[in-house]
Simulated assay, not measured.
Amino acid sequence: MKADPAAQKRLLDLAAVDAELTRLAHRRRTLPEHAELDAAETAVRTSKDALVEAETAAGDLDRDIRRIERDVEGVVARTEKDRALLAGSGIGAKQATELQHELDTLARRQAVLEDEQLEIMEQREALGGNLDHARRLLGEAEEKLSDVTVRRDTELADVAAAEAGRGRDREAILPALPADLLGAYEARRSQGKTGAGLLRERRCGACRLELDRTYLARLKGTAPDEVVECEECGAILVRTAESGL
């Protein structure tokens, strides 16, 4: 394949643009903010789970407290009723004994309920501190997530802007390249290889390897418009005054 040396040299501009696009794509994939964001999202989920667990436990204790309060109210109401009956006139000795026995039983029941109520209220008070701590941790985790998201989005926007600029540069270069030369270049890039490189001081600019002297001697006798390849990596080897041939 033949191509004007100027067109071949222009291929180096395209290769430089494509190299920059490759670097930008790598930067997009490997932004440290991606890992930070994953960690921040995990922290938010963990904090939410911890808060839900604490809120559930608090709700259970609150229900227990209300239940005991109702039980105590029932015991107090029954006690007041029995005391009124005992203080009234017209009850026999047997009924009075039964009422007093019930009053003693109610008193013991009330004491047990109040002890249980106190214990649960102490647990609830302690859990209040856990709730405040869980809410604070969640707030901090959400704030960090927001910060990392903003930084990640800013970095991605910078990458996108740079990619757009390089994309315009690429489109400006393409019309200057013959179709067959561009096709050969793109075929190499489709295989994940560098499409073209400058031959400078016996070294290929694509793979950075120094070429064999015999091969270089053969290149020296090759017409300038002949498209040649690196014997090491297969990239189109662009020869200029810097090549030292």
Rank of each mutant, 00 (worst) to 15 (best):
I173V: 12
S89E: 13
L177H: 03
L21W: 02
M121A: 12
A196L: 00
E242T: 09
V227D: 04
E143P: 01
E36D: 10
E55D: 11
A16T: 10
V148E: 00
K2H: 08
C204T: 05
A141P: 00
T214I: 09
Q123K: 14
R109W: 05
P32L: 08
V17W: 03
R239K: 11
E41V: 03
A93C: 03
H101C: 07
R66P: 01
A217Q: 09
V112S: 13
A217K: 12
Q123I: 00
L174R: 08
L113N: 02
D71E: 15
R67Q: 15
E69K: 13
D49G: 07
Q100R: 15
D115Q: 14
T214W: 13
V238C: 00
I236A: 02
D62V: 09
D4Q: 10
E36A: 11
E41A: 07
R108C: 03
G90N: 11
C230E: 04
E36P: 00
R202E: 12
E232M: 09
A111M: 12
D153W: 01
V150G: 01
V148D: 01
A241I: 10
A217C: 06
A157S: 12
V44S: 00
H26D: 14
V17S: 08
G59Y: 03
A35F: 05
D60A: 13
E20H: 08
A217T: 10
L182W: 02
L127D: 05
E229G: 10
D147L: 12
A43F: 00
A16Q: 11
V17N: 04
L11K: 00
A3C: 08
L51V: 03
R203K: 13
T154R: 11
G192L: 06
C207I: 07
D64Y: 07
L145P: 01
A134F: 00
G234V: 04
E41T: 06
L137T: 11
R170V: 05
A84E: 14
E171Y: 04
G195K: 00
S47G: 11
T194Q: 10
R200Y: 09
E80I: 07
V75C: 02
D62K: 10
P178F: 01
A160E: 09
V238I: 13
E143A: 15
R135F: 05
G59I: 03
D225C: 07
E33P: 06
V112F: 08
L237N: 07
L21F: 03
L12P: 05
A16L: 05
K9H: 13
K81T: 13
R166M: 11
A164I: 02
L118M: 13
T214N: 15
E116V: 02
L145Y: 02
A7Y: 00
D212A: 06
D62T: 13
D13L: 08
E114L: 12
K2L: 11
Q191R: 14
D115W: 05
R67G: 10
V17I: 14
A126T: 06
G221E: 08
G129L: 12
R23L: 12
E143K: 15
